[in-house]
């Protein structure tokens, strides 16, 4: 392989994904605000640009032009490092995500493993930010985030192992390829051979909500209890990076769910139907954004859970279910495969 072309391609993809992540983060804020507004029978941003479409740019300009205040007595290196550490792994993960058969930066054999590994860095960043802030609310929030993430990583990994068992690969492209041929072949549905498909999906979705600290599991942020949680003391782009990191993580979670359960870039219709049946990146994005909309809708519908019911949900419901699911799937694979 020609090294020069490879590096060139790498740079193009990297720039592209950073731009994609940033644009998504910015416009998901717009979607969130506009969506929340309409759910609540308001109009939302409408003054900056048509339908308020330029609002994210205005917000970004505002955040960037503000002073980055470092309060007295904080742990400076950690305080500065934490927001960066939320954003970097998020962009790294984008490298492994196949948006279609052709649009992917690197085709790893262990793509799934890499995503999960990088996703765990996020919790470290939140812990660092909360701890370094020298604010009691932030420290409480950091402690909450850590226990929450540890509790939800277990069922999530068990579910991922189930999927790996079924598709027989940790390569994301191959996992998607295993779901080709219309909606009935998706991992989501029992028709794919795994009769526990829907439960697997729901558990994974709940875990991804918890891992991304989204409502109703936004205990780290908990604005009515902990002011703003771990980013209470952050201003300017420090806050901006946390914010972007949160939305980038949502995109990743939705993309991963699409890959694992919703057949990636494949159309839900059989391939024999022209146009609508063809697989393309459009299908991938449609599925991904529908999932993101679900995440937004959930945030504006439910109250927040408490720490104990959050942990109870994980240990008493999700983990037993996912373990049973793993056993059943393994048995099925052995029987049928």
């Amino acid at each position: 392989m020609d090294l020069g072309i490879n590096v060139f391609e790498m740079v193009i993809y990297l720039v592209g994904f950073i731009a994609f992540a940033a644009a998504n983060a910015a416009y998901l804020v717009w979607v969130e605000r506009k969506g929340a507004a309409h759910i609540q029978r308001r109009t939302g941003p409408k003054e900056v640009g048509p339908y308020g479409l330029l609002q994210p740019l205005a917000d970004g300009a505002k955040l960037m032009s503000k002073q980055f205040i470092i309060p007295a007595g904080v742990d400076r290196p950690l305080f500065i490092l934490a927001p960066i550490l939320t954003m970097v792994p998020a962009i790294m993960i984008f490298v492994t995500i196949p948006f279609s058969e052709t649009i992917l930066a690197r085709d790893f054999n262990i793509g799934l493993l890499m995503i999960l590994a990088f996703a765990s860095v996020n919790v470290l960043a939140l812990l660092m930010g909360g701890w370094a802030s020298r604010n009691k609310y932030a420290v409480i929030s950091a402690a909450r985030v850590v226990s929450q993430n540890i509790a939800y990583e277990i069922p999530m990994l068990i579910i991922v192992i189930t999927i790996v068992l079924i598709s027989g690969s940790m390569n994301l492209t191959e996992i998607v390829a295993g779901q080709a041929g219309g909606i009935l072949h998706w991992n989501l549905l029992p028709t794919n051979g795994n009769f526990l498909g829907p439960i697997t999906f729901i558990i994974f979705f709940i875990c991804s909500l918890a891992e991304t600290n989204r409502a109703p599991f936004d205990l780290g942020e908990a604005e009515s209890e902990l002011i703003a949680g771990f980013h209470t003391e952050y201003s300017s782009m420090g806050f901006g990076l946390f914010f972007m990191g949160e939305y980038a993580n949502i995109v990743i979670a939705a993309a991963l769910t699409t890959i694992l359960f919703l057949g990636g870039w494949y159309s839900p219709l059989p391939e024999s139907i022209p146009y609508a049946g063809a697989s393309s990146v459009v299908w991938f994005l449609v599925k991904m954004y529908l999932l993101i909309w679900l995440v937004v809708l959930i945030r504006w519908t439910y109250p927040r859970v408490t720490l104990w019911s959050l942990l109870n949900l994980s240990w008493k419901i999700l983990i037993p279910f996912s373990l049973f699911n793993l056993l059943a799937s393994a048995g099925l694979v052995k029987l049928l495969g």
């Binding site: 029978r41 308001r42 109703p216 009515s224 519908t301």
Partner: peptide, 16 residues
Amino acid sequence: FVLDLGGFTPLLYAFD
């Protein structure tokens, strides 16, 4: 009260 519990939307419906 629901806002205290983290649910934002019912507040706006109640205000309506």
